[in-house]
Write a protein that binds this DNA or RNA. Structure first.
Lengths: 330, 330
DNA sequence: GCCGCCAGTGACAACGTTGTCAAATGACAA
DNA sequence: TTGTCATTTGACAACGTTGTCACTGGCGGC
């Protein structure tokens, strides 16, 4: 900047004004400065700028995802990015791998870089550590899951309602023995989904049978094994509800392997790429990660714009997509 | 930092030394400083630090992907992140959407934030604009595709060889009329893959028939339409090679719709999630995005560590995964 | 002709750090 | 006791910006 000022024969403050597009610089000087900075290939240094600026904004936000490569998380990432670029804001992203410690380390690394805001898909079981970040002025929004011991803006899917919708769909077709395969019960969304299953059966006057419920299934293979076992028993279920992506795939594998894919109904939570090309197509309760991400980013930026209203808790609805597997009769 | 120094009754420089873990601070003082910074909830400001530091490092790298939500790109992202976290480096990621202009804007936004290095999955047709970044000391590595008019480290898949492997597989099973469905020919990898197809047919002494080749198929629907049309003609192909992910899905849809999925062979480039659960399973030439990303990050960090050796061009091999669709006889 | 005002410009300090170098301290040998 | 030297500590400037405020000159109104 100093060199540009020297070349354009103006003060460095004037260069700053031109670079920031402030008014009150005569056009002739502005042109000279622009020419000089062009010639010297000048690059504005945003880190120095944000250091000095009164608001201290870095035009960067931090994003803690479960895994940047996971389809759901990366869809969130993308829609958040889309809102951010419109405001010239960049996104630092990291994967927590469902590990509260990694989550905290990421947040701390983001904080050292003075991000303006954080969007967190939580893994930790206690978010009170974020109090100091908030006190430091960082806006914080949670997506996909509830924070624990910390009040903040949230954007969540209505998990229980989604599951109830799917279970009702099965009941309406005459199913009474509906198996449930769920993810780790410690994950708040998984617990919610399980709750939806229990509630809807209650509501329909169907007793919840313990041997038709398997939780804590982490990954495709474990889910496949659990489904296989459940289907092999006497009084096997005539329909399955899979509470998560990978669990759905595992259940589908089991059905295929047992030759039951046209006999036993299956509905999964979360859409799966190519689900429509399978035989039968898999009926799912689809979340809308793009809508969740967009909403979260909008809430975050409203906070950064000074919105001091009470915490907002947004719910994004699910959508049932019928493709065949959920329409198999008992 | 000043407040911490005051509370610990030491100079601010001593605090700096403790925070950076420099040697030559007496344990008693260090303990006092740590206690004070704990009590005041002190957060090291990395932006100010990198501003002052002699090497000017920000412990942040920039990543330009085609789309952070695309499975291939996000797998790259994840493996790059894994290498980066080990070094305490964070990743800024952005999507170029196959648009050279967005790519340039992202790079410029990264540059303003003084990233230490850039990993680029290129979209632009001319990368000479990066010369000034390199002159400024930024390390640059390209992944997945060649840069244009710019010499830099690259980590690429051997696209042509992969396709040749697949086409040979089809020929070995007796296919002579093998259709090719390709992505935009302007994309360097798509051109390479097409080249592989032509070369292998030549090598096998099979004439390349123009009506069996369709390029510039962007997206599932367009690919499906093209495949449908090709298969409807007389002298239709007995096998198809799909040069990209979405094209493979489109081709598979067409085969299914026409009831030819057990009659016409199909091999696709790039693995597809769930491809094993389809009927038939889809035989693919799989890239290894995790290996590509890991390698790219390693090369980048070696450069940041001062490696001044000549540009490196790494090739990551593909793997054929046979699942049924590629093993259908003519 | 004088005053006040405004737009345009620049000098300077400050943001939160770290590099440099000098000062203070203490241990040890002569 | 004094001198030498190594170790620990601190004062100060500097990184590249921007906020603050003061200065300049031109213009209109009295």
């Amino acid at each position: 900047m100093r060199e540009v000022a020297a070349l354009a024969k103006v003060s460095i403050k004037t260069v700053s004004r031109v670079v920031n597009g402030e008014s009150g610089v005569s056009p002739s000087l502005a042109k000279r400065v622009l020419a000089a900075s062009e010639r010297l290939n000048y690059r504005h240094n945003l880190t120095a700028s944000s250091l000095r600026r009164s608001d201290g904004r870095s035009a960067t936000i931090g994003l803690v995802l479960e895994d940047v490569a996971n389809p759901f998380s990366s869809a969130l990432h993308r829609s958040i990015e889309d809102v951010a670029v419109e405001r010239g804001v960049l996104v630092l992203a990291g994967s927590s791998d469902e590990d509260g410690d990694r989550e905290r380390k990421l947040v701390s690394a983001f904080a050292s870089r003075r991000v303006d805001g954080l969007i967190i898909q939580p893994s930790s079981l206690d978010h009170s550590y974020l109090l100091s970040e908030r006190r430091a002025g960082t806006a914080i929004v949670f997506v996909d899951r509830q924070p624990a011991f910390f009040d903040a803006d949230t954007v969540l899917t209505d998990n229980a309602a989604g599951v109830r919708r799917g279970v009702r769909h099965l009941v309406e077709q005459g199913h009474r023995r509906i198996g449930y395969l769920g993810d780790l019960h410690t994950i708040d969304t998984a617990a919610e989904r399980h709750r939806g299953y229990v509630e809807e059966l209650d509501h329909q006057g169907i007793e919840v049978e313990e041997r038709l419920v398997r939780l804590d299934l982490r990954g495709i293979d474990i889910a496949e094994a659990a489904a296989t076992e459940m289907l092999a028993r006497s009084q096997a279920p005539t329909a399955l509800f899979a509470g998560q992506n990978l669990v759905t795939i595992g259940a589908f594998r089991a059905l295929r392997r047992l030759g039951l894919h046209r006999t036993v109904a299956l509905i999964g939570f979360d859409d799966i790429l190519l689900a429509d090309l399978l035989e039968p197509g898999i009926t799912v309760i689809a979340q809308d990660p793009a809508a969740i991400g967009r909403m979260a980013a909008q809430v975050l930026f409203r906070r950064l714009d000074g919105d001091r209203s009470p915490m907002q808790h947004h719910i994004v609805v699910t959508r049932m997509i019928t493709r065949g597997s959920g329409e198999i009769l008992p």
